[in-house]
Simulated scan of single mutants.
Amino acid sequence: MQKYFLCRYDELSEGQSKGFSLGDTAAGTDNVFAVMKDGEVYAYKNTCPHQGINLDWQPDQFLDPDGALIQCASHGALFLIESGECIAGPCAGEALTPVPVEHSPEGLYVLLAD
């Protein structure tokens, strides 16, 4: 497992989403995003299960207009924030790939498989 720093606690607010590029560009990067809901941080790979494309069409825009669900900007698929399960759209029944989040005094880290 590889550990990557995401952000300080004050850089991700309740009801907000934020995208991150992680890793060495020479070795390829992993794109992930994090969402804070009810004080919990949820992180997922930034890949829609429908066609493997990024979910956001603008930086840090991963949520529907109400901020209640994760939304794929390309196909409108909707995902539960807490589980990543697709509840509407072309990939209904599939799910986003979760990324473990680690809390530390410095802020938030994610763990990615090597």
Rank of each mutant, 00 (worst) to 15 (best):
G19Y: 03
S21T: 05
K45L: 00
Q2T: 09
C7V: 13
K45S: 01
G84N: 09
N54C: 10
G15H: 11
F20W: 02
S83K: 12
L112K: 09
F33N: 03
G19C: 02
V99E: 15
G89H: 04
G93W: 01
E102T: 15
C7I: 14
G52C: 05
I87S: 05
L80M: 14
W57T: 11
S17M: 11
L55V: 02
A26F: 08
L22C: 07
Q61C: 10
F20S: 03
S13Y: 05
L108I: 04
D60W: 04
Q51E: 08
I87A: 05
G93V: 01
G52V: 01
E94W: 03
V41C: 02
H75G: 02
Q51W: 11
F20D: 00
A77N: 14
Q61I: 09
G76Q: 13
M1P: 10
Q58D: 12
A77D: 05
L112C: 05
E106S: 02
C48P: 07
C72H: 09
E82H: 13
T47H: 05
G93H: 09
V35S: 00
L6T: 14
L12K: 14
I70Y: 00
Y4C: 15
S74F: 06
A27C: 03
G15M: 10
G28K: 02
H75F: 07
